[in-house]
Simulated assay, not measured.
Amino acid sequence: MSVSNPLIQMETNFGEIILELDVAKAPVSVENFLSYARSGHYDGTIFHRVIKGFMIQGGGLTPEMEEKPTGPPIANEARNKLKNTTGSIAMARTEEIDSARAQFFINTENNRDLNHGGLNPQVYGYAVFGQVVDGMDVVYEIERVATGASAGFENVPLEPVVISKVTVID
């Protein structure tokens, strides 16, 4: 990644995570994330899905497990050759290929099964658009929280892991 890539400061109740976004390889996903960040969408959301040895997912729900409104879905950039490796950030989506909106996840392991593997929706993959450059200790601390079921969701932290503020560092 180059120095022209935006840096993101994500403040959580567990500490700070710094991300570098890859504009060249994931322009649609980066612009989408930056738009949500600049609008304040992520402020006060939670990491609502935490699976040890896999990833931490957030950016769409409040601590009350209410989904925040989002814009339209974006094109899936999983074919950009960026891999779902430890510390990478990717767009979360439904079973539909082009369904990512605001939610994202940070990989806590090398998750090869999430990489682009073909045009079939089951193997299309998840678009990586950046990398944690500082704060993996915070990511791992979040990964270790106790989880359970809540509001129809599985793997929800029993104590909310709150994203208090997401700032684009200029």
Rank of each mutant, 00 (worst) to 15 (best):
Val123Ala: 03
Leu119Glu: 14
Thr45Glu: 07
Asn107Leu: 11
Val28Ser: 07
Ile17Gly: 04
Ser29Trp: 02
Gly135Asn: 03
Gly44Asp: 08
Ile142Phe: 04
Pro72Ala: 04
Asp22Thr: 08
Thr45Asp: 07
Thr85Arg: 15
Asn110Glu: 13
Ile56Glu: 01
Asp22Ser: 15
Thr70Glu: 00
Asn80Met: 09
Pro72Met: 08
Gly40Met: 10
Val50Phe: 01
Thr12Met: 01
Leu21Gln: 07
Ser4Arg: 10
Pro6Trp: 11
Leu7Gly: 06
Pro27Glu: 09
Gly40Cys: 14
Met136Thr: 00
Tyr42Met: 09
Asn110Phe: 10
Pro72Gln: 12
Ile97Val: 15
Ile106Lys: 05
Val139Phe: 13
Glu109Leu: 11
Val168Pro: 06
Ile46Val: 12
Phe105Gln: 04
Ala149His: 06
Asn80Thr: 05
Glu154Trp: 00
Met91Phe: 01
Glu95Gln: 07
Arg144Asn: 15
Ile97Gly: 01
Met55Gln: 03
Gly40Trp: 12
Gly135His: 04
Thr108Ala: 08
Asn120Trp: 07
Pro27Ala: 06
Ala151Gln: 06
Ser35Lys: 14
Ile46Ser: 11
Leu7Trp: 13
His116Trp: 11
Gly118His: 04
Ile169Tyr: 14
Ile51Gln: 04
Ile17Phe: 09
Phe47Cys: 09
Met55Arg: 01
Val23Phe: 05
Asn107Ile: 01
Phe47Leu: 05
Ile18Gln: 07
Gly60Phe: 10
Asp113Ala: 13
Glu66Gln: 13
Ser39Asp: 10
Phe129Gln: 00
Glu109Ala: 14
